[in-house]
Design a protein around this nucleic acid. Structure first.
Lengths: 187, 187
DNA sequence: TTTGTTTTGGGACGATCGTTCAGGTAGTTT
DNA sequence: AAACTACCTGAACGATCGTCCCAAAACAAA
């Protein structure tokens, strides 16, 4: 018989799976990948310890699933960033500078988590497609009048973010805007 | 009595201390910060486990000492890079592109270790001065005709490195040169 | 030599780790 | 109803972890 509704058991399982992933991401934001254990994740998600081993065959599996999910979110955020920046025309730099300041301020933990994905992907090849996704989204959305300038822009964004993470105080959008302007200015 | 020679015991201790730090760095290059334990470090250095706890009051202390030492090496390397790039005049871009390709190729493990320092420094404020040292060296050595262009250059270098770490194959100096050229070209 | 200081290293403690297992529950199919 | 499947979970195992303790060795100062 063809069932239109999904198996209720599988539905609950899938829901818990995503809850565990969300809890893992919260822990990475707070304590880094080093803080991720079956027990800390289970406690954060409010589930028994064995639940994380049931839904993920190993701790590595859990980490990989979490960071892939994180990368997917990042890609869609980049998508909407481009969309907004376009609608603001020549003030795209302001939009970008604002988002960078946000990534280094209120969303600092998330940004650190994303760069831990980067480094984990450097060591685990299976994570690289996920880590590259936001780069791919940007590349596919932007017109390439100048390939080199575009690569400089991508590298500059990454560099500003990672350098901003070790500043004692997160840089403001006003401090970032001239640099972003320089990055976006055609020549 | 004033002794010109150092205490032989302290000398040996200091030597073993640096050996432990070197072993720790090798482990970070190979397995990342996650692979660092008192026992793995001791085995790599060929010393008993308790030796690492004697010379470093905690595992955190060992990590901090290692990454500070790593940052100091990086700063002196940057110093000589600038020196060589200057002596090559307008071909400084070639020098920089070559060093980037080297950092992403043969010295890939070391580069990953350096960025793990970055992320550790993002979470541990006491590491930030060490992590910023190579930026400071560059900043102090280079004439600031254009502050913004210089900041773009620094960010671009960082971005190229971290993006190169998740490439399936490390980029060659030839691929990097146009981007570095664009970064260095005055306007 | 005697006394004091620093380094060395074997052994062990309690804590925490990843993972397994077996029994129990809830939902689906026949 | 029974049979089957998928999810849940408490308990526990062996391994490994950071760290401490203490006696021996090496060296310096008296």
């Amino acid at each position: 018989m063809v069932r239109l509704q999904v198996d209720g058991r599988k539905a609950r399982g899938e829901k818990r799976r995503t809850e565990i992933i969300a809890a893992t991401l919260r822990i990475i934001e707070r304590d880094g990948v080093a803080g991720v254990t079956h027990r800390t994740v289970a406690a954060e998600a409010g589930v028994p310890t064995t639940s994380t081993t049931y839904h993920f065959s190993s701790l590595d599996d859990l980490l990989i699933a979490t960071l892939i999910s994180c990368a997917r979110d990042m890609a869609t955020e980049v998508y909407w960033m481009i969309d907004r920046a376009r609608s603001r025309g020549s003030r795209g730099a302001e939009e970008v500078a604002g988002l960078l300041a946000e990534a280094l301020g209120p969303r600092r933990g998330r940004t650190m988590a994303e760069y831990e994905l980067y480094l984990l992907a450097a060591r685990k090849p299976e994570l690289r497609p996920a880590a590259r996704r936001w780069l791919d989204v940007l590349t596919s959305m932007v017109r390439h009048d100048d390939e080199v300038a575009f690569r400089v822009f991508l590298a500059g964004i990454d560099g500003l973010l990672i350098q901003g993470l070790i500043d004692d105080e997160p840089p403001s959008a006003d401090e970032l805007r001239p640099v972003v302007d320089y990055l976006l200015k055609p020549r």
